[in-house]
């Protein structure tokens, strides 16, 4: 995997975690992160991830890669929360 692709996917992962933890339905933490800053931060990380992917891929491919990655992460994050809930067992 090319370096910028790895960086782009990592940035997007961080962005998705931020967006997930801002949700009232998140199950990783006892309390959700403040919605607006977490969502804005997550969005910026996603934009940075896309910018990194654009270094390795044509625009259409970078968009497809990011969309596919987001779908997978947003499926996995709630399942991880259900499998390993926070200490309060939420």
């Amino acid at each position: 995997m090319a370096g910028m692709t790895a960086l782009g996917l990592l940035l997007a992962l961080a962005g998705c975690v931020g967006i997930y933890l801002a949700s009232p339905n998140q199950r990783w933490l006892a309390a959700a992160w403040p919605a607006t800053p977490a969502r804005i931060g997550g969005g910026l990380l996603l934009a940075a991830g896309l910018a990194a992917l654009l270094q390795d891929f044509q625009a259409v491919v970078a968009g497809f890669v990011l969309a596919t990655w987001l779908m997978l992460l947003f499926v996995l994050l709630p399942y991880l929360g259900a499998l390993f809930p926070d200490k309060k067992g939420r």
Binding site: T5, V61, F64, V65, T68, L72, V75
Partner: peptide
């Protein structure tokens, strides 16, 4: 058939 091996793994899991 885009994005190489990382996307193949993403598709596998999806």
């Amino acid at each position: 058939t885009f994005g190489g091996v990382p996307v193949q793994w993403m598709y596998f899991l999806l």
